[in-house]
Nucleic acid binder design. Structure first.
Lengths: 340, 340
DNA sequence: GGGTTTTCTGTGAACGTACACAGATTAGGT
DNA sequence: ACCTAATCTGTGTACGTTCACAGAAAACCC
């Protein structure tokens, strides 16, 4: 009868040591290429590693080293973020680029339910990551408490959580909204409205605030349509509402590019030309901006840069450097295209 | 002089034991809520855990348990996938949903460079994950070899890697392309062309093959425009090429919804009406499909379902169940809207 | 050739947990 | 009151590394 070695155990550093006729210590030195190992020992060990198919066990390593060389990238509310938010991919890649350069493994953790929250909290607590980057749409995030309690090096991206000492990297939504609204006013529009979205989030509220800042005395509360989400369909609805309230409206600031695309659709339906009858500007400079006809004038959101800076912030903390208590705000250039 | 406990060491199970006046074993039983522990001990231990702020160390646990309760989700070529591929988010959420239900932590690993490939390979080797789901656009993926060598439970999603025994979950691109082309033919179109994209990938090549299958004798090689990527801009280019070759073209199968959106743009520019002059169908049923005017008739790709099945496949292997050697193909219903 | 430095190697302890085992206590049935 | 069974608890070992330390060997200098 033949015994089937259905699942052979993984080779350990000890197996390599006996195979090469040396001690564990010497093998360890070769694996982490430290000095003070003879040429003969080195070649023997390398051959042995190849022969037994040795790969170091990270769990054991991070247990004794007290670190994992990994940084978590937490995405909360993925339904809205992954499927609608065009920035998330850029942030992710920016963060990965920086972490990769320092040989940190980025692991993204998706939180999609209460169960996920608990599990991710356990994961973070368990020493599987040395730091964490959080992209959250929520003002108050239960995972924030866990991170604070663990004193885990962290960085928020997008906008800061309420009442949290954690550092963050973001953009100045209010100033950017003000800037692009002023630019729209300079085109000579007289009746400017806004489709404001996601007012329950900092970003949404700030964009509306920037809009009113820009209009000053000329602000007309009736020309603000409020919709729940940064989506195409909410853009359609919001624009329809504005047209009903003022058929002569000639300028619109949409809270996001997706909203702007929806507004464009509503205007087309209503027989208005853009930018002829109505000038419209968006926010994000996402892939939406070039998919519409005409292309959108919008505020560029430096997604990749946000990811990079967040990663640098976490790496800095890992190196023991003190980080600025205030958040970092990145520049948001205005991209002027054809829609206004 | 006051000593500042700048970074207090994390409490261990041993600290809890001392605090509660019991042994490590009993604490362990409480933490993993096993039976055979008295009510008094339990309350004392729970209080002690709270007091010293104990959180179990996963690295130590997975070292002794020889498993990590985590499954990797590898995304290769994120530039094209995250930013253009509308399916990735759905796959990710589907996989997470299933894994979450079994209390597995899903960790996504992004491969964006050679350096990343090596690091991810080390990460997988190191015992940080018990299994892996791979979403790759590449036919030949270096990470595949690593996984095979490690005998790590795995599942490919999208389409199978070449010459690999690893199980996969996907759709039948060829049959789906054939089906929707036939549906387009049934609308009475006489001169049907295709904007074929990404012919270096299985999906791209299969979609073209399905198209020629459907046309049979009526296939006209001149009416196939080949473009490199599944993108909007390539769609514009491809459609322009088709219009040049046959100005009377009245039906188009676009290799993806993004390509179809580009084609629509080109047709609008050329003054053709859709679906009046030209009928057009896409592939993916992505968010593009409802953003265009008119909405796209397309092949629905069950992204969420693909993720679910891939996760189930990996979980099955972890439970020791034998998996079907052949891949699993999911249904792809045709969604008929206004563009044809 | 003796002493000092440099290079190389092996050993034991530690990291924080789970688990098997043994021992102690309590409960249950005659 | 005794025996058996059930319940509860503590101890030692193992998981696979890294690191400090102690020696051994080689190299170098007067």
């Amino acid at each position: 009868m033949v015994t089937i070695p259905s699942r052979r155990k993984r080779a350990t550093i000890h197996d390599v040591a006996v195979e090469a006729g040396v001690s564990r210590g010497t093998v360890s030195r070769v694996v982490n290429d430290e000095p003070y190992v003879s040429a003969s020992a080195r070649t023997a060990i390398e051959a042995a590693i190849e022969k037994v198919g040795y790969v170091p066990n990270n769990a054991a390593r991070s247990l004794v080293m007290q670190r994992s060389e990994a940084v978590g990238f937490i995405v909360h509310e993925p339904h809205s973020l992954f499927l609608d938010d065009p920035n998330i991919g850029g942030i992710l890649l920016g963060a990965n680029t920086v972490l990769s350069r320092s040989d940190y493994q980025m692991v993204s953790l998706v939180i999609d339910s209460q169960r996920d929250t608990d599990r991710v909290a356990r994961y973070l607590s368990g020493g599987f990551v040395d730091g964490v980057i959080i992209v959250s749409a929520r003002r108050e995030d239960p995972i924030t408490r866990v991170i604070e309690k663990l004193r885990l090096p962290a960085a928020f991206v997008g906008h800061p959580p309420e009442q949290s000492p954690l550092p963050f990297v973001g953009i100045d939504n209010r100033a950017s909204a003000r800037a692009i609204t002023e630019r729209l006013m300079q085109t000579g529009r007289q009746r400017i409205g806004m489709v404001a979205a996601a007012l329950d989030r900092d970003s949404g509220a700030d964009r509306l605030a920037g809009f009113t800042d820009a209009l000053g005395d000329r602000f007309n509360p009736a020309l603000v349509a409020r919709v729940p989400l940064y989506t195409f369909t909410d853009g359609v609805k919001g624009m329809c509402a504005l047209l009903e309230r003022d058929p002569l409206i000639d300028g619109v600031f949409a809270a996001s590019d997706a909203v702007a695309a929806g507004a464009l659709e509503a205007l087309r339906h209503a027989g208005r030309s853009v930018p002829g009858d109505v000038g419209i500007v968006g926010f994000d400079d996402s892939s939406w901006a070039l998919r519409t006809q005409p292309h959108l004038s919008t505020v560029h959101q430096p997604a990749f840069g946000l990811g990079e800076r967040a990663a640098e912030c976490v790496l800095g903390q890992l190196r023991g450097e003190e980080q600025p208590a205030d958040g970092i705000l990145l520049e948001t250039p205005i991209i002027w295209r054809d829609s206004a």
